[in-house]
Nucleic acid binder design. Structure first.
Lengths: 337, 337
DNA sequence: CTGTTAGCGCGTTCAC
DNA sequence: GTGAACGCGCTAACAG
């Protein structure tokens, strides 16, 4: 590694001033076509690449967006990341990816690290933080978009956008489907108690049950880790403790697959003894046996919309829509026909 | 957003010079304990965060690593990303994630973009580029680690490390397993023709077949997209054209699952009519019916090792091992007992 | 149309 | 133990 080529090198070689090179680079129009071509040729010849670091110091824009997720390897979030990255790339932004591993201390830590990196904005898909801590940490960033979490506090800057799944409608739809099939005692594997999506889905579940004249007992509801293993363990306990359950609505497909496994362990047939409905429609959902009935959510779109909303806000169009709610769709398969 | 707090604000407020604040920030030892504490208190009080942008301009280190993958939502790579991110976070580095979508032009584009971002190094998990183009693009970065691809050219800088799966041994193991079960006519769904992993696995496949005294016909080998759909389509054609095939070794588990679907479409029983072996052991592999026999690869470890190797090289320990080969393990399930 | 001057926020010389 | 200068590579203002 000799020396990185700087703008000054290009300028000297091309026999022009720094400014002219800078103008060519930034497509300013007040440069003669001749000079422009000559400078461009020199840039190519020297293999010059402008430093976003130096540029960022003066423009106060780094062209980088922070993307915070609990876990990229979770198929749900990897789709969100793919969508967000796609939009960012198309608009010439880079993505700084941060995993939080569901840890609120890490949420704060990465938000702080992103601040030092001077990102132009943050897409936050992992916010288990308390309202005030989140507000504090997020308001230190120029703009932010929250995914699947609404902020109660008024955002006077208008800088915080929100993209959500319609969890309530989804939970209601899923539960209603089970009720329509004649089920009365429907359990709910609720996912992590801190999950905002979980709360929404639970609300939908309660609404559907109540509307059908059933008061869901708290014994039918159980929190669990949002994983196959979490679902297996909790479904096992839930079904063991409440033999009257004939159907299970699950926080997500991973939990539902765990529930499927628990049923096999307990010798219960799905859907004949216990019907199961998941959430998300991850690729796996169609491939397990029996195939999972589930609420499809477009996670890719969650990512694209979040990034688009953020870039819009960076552009300064903050007056436009601040909250986007994405619908869900019931996909009926064999686990709850 | 009023004004970002700068070091000068801290210095003024604390009644010291810029340098003292800088020294406290970087843990230099020649500061009195008293001053240090006072400055730290002021930093906290003002909520000051040093700008990595300004710092990077002078130190020439940004604390950011470029991570290039074909597709984060591919379960294989999302694990690699998780591993790499974990190590980076632990060592106080940030990860700039780039998807290439298997497009060589994008590979070049992101490598260039990462150069402008002045990353301290690059982990490259997507290199379909020709040797000379890759060399050219990668040698512009301070250091780099290639995952699953070896570089033929001599790296005089010693800057390029390599982390690989033992694809040859894996392909051999998988094929040998099928041969041991009495199969003679084993097909190979080879994945993309540009995949280096695919080449390695094919070599293992050929070695095992040849060692068993079978000359694999080129008609038994078919390239395909590394997806479920790619596997379904190509398996369908391969099995349709060659009814003598009794076993299929597949580039990866997604392809194998596609092959599984093709068998269902064709009315062939797995494993009785056709045995199938995949590669990777993604979570899905154990959950499909029949469960997939496959070569387990530790993708998470691929990510951690690659990032560790890179950070080591950034630290300047280039003389140590330049190439890491990770073993694979055969997991026998029902698709090829 | 082009060049000159002045910083952006910080770390690295050196002095004190 | 602490501070004052200078410069990292680039762009924003102003000249000409």
């Amino acid at each position: 590694m000799t020396h990185r080529v700087r703008m000054a090198d290009v300028a000297r070689q091309a026999g022009v001033s720094l400014m002219t090179v800078s103008r060519v680079l930034n497509n300013k129009d007040d440069v003669s076509a001749e000079t422009r071509e000559h400078v461009q040729a020199t840039i190519k010849q020297l293999g010059y690449r402008p430093s976003d670091v130096a540029r960022g110091l003066v423009t106060k824009r780094t062209g980088a967006i922070g993307l915070v997720v609990p876990d990229v390897s979770n198929p749900y979030f990897s789709e969100v990341v793919r969508g967000a990255e796609h939009v960012a790339y198309a608009r010439n932004y880079s993505v700084l990816l941060c995993n939080t591993e569901e840890d609120t201390r890490r949420e704060l830590a990465v938000l702080q690290s992103l601040e030092e990196k001077c990102v132009d904005g943050v897409v936050m898909c992992s916010s288990r933080l308390a309202e005030d801590e989140l507000e504090e940490a997020i308001s230190r960033h120029p703009v932010a978009v929250l995914v699947n979490r609404r902020l109660e506090f008024a955002d006077e800057r208008g800088g915080v956008g929100v993209v959500m799944l319609d969890d309530v409608a989804g939970g209601q739809m899923a539960t209603q489907h089970l009720l329509n099939s004649g089920h009365r005692v429907v359990g709910f594997l609720a996912g992590p108690p801190t999950s905002h999506s979980g709360h929404g889905r639970m609300e939908g579940y309660r609404m559907a049950m109540t509307a059908a004249g059933i008061l869901p007992s708290s014994r039918w509801i159980k929190h669990c880790a949002p994983t196959v293993e979490g679902g297996r363990v909790s479904a096992s306990e839930l079904l063991g403790d409440n033999p009257e359950l004939t159907a299970l609505f699950c926080f997500n497909d991973l939990v539902a697959i765990g529930a499927l496994q628990a049923c096999i362990d307990l010798g219960l047939a799905v859907p004949d003894n216990v019907a199961i409905v998941g959430f998300d429609d991850i690729p796996l959902a169609a491939l397990v046996t029996p195939a999972l009935t589930t609420c499809r959510t477009s996670r890719y779109e969650l990512g694209t919309q979040a990034m688009e909303l953020l870039l819009e806000r960076i552009g300064g169009h903050a007056e436009e829509c601040k909250e986007i709610v994405l619908p869900t769709e019931l996909i009926v398969r064999n686990s709850a026909p």
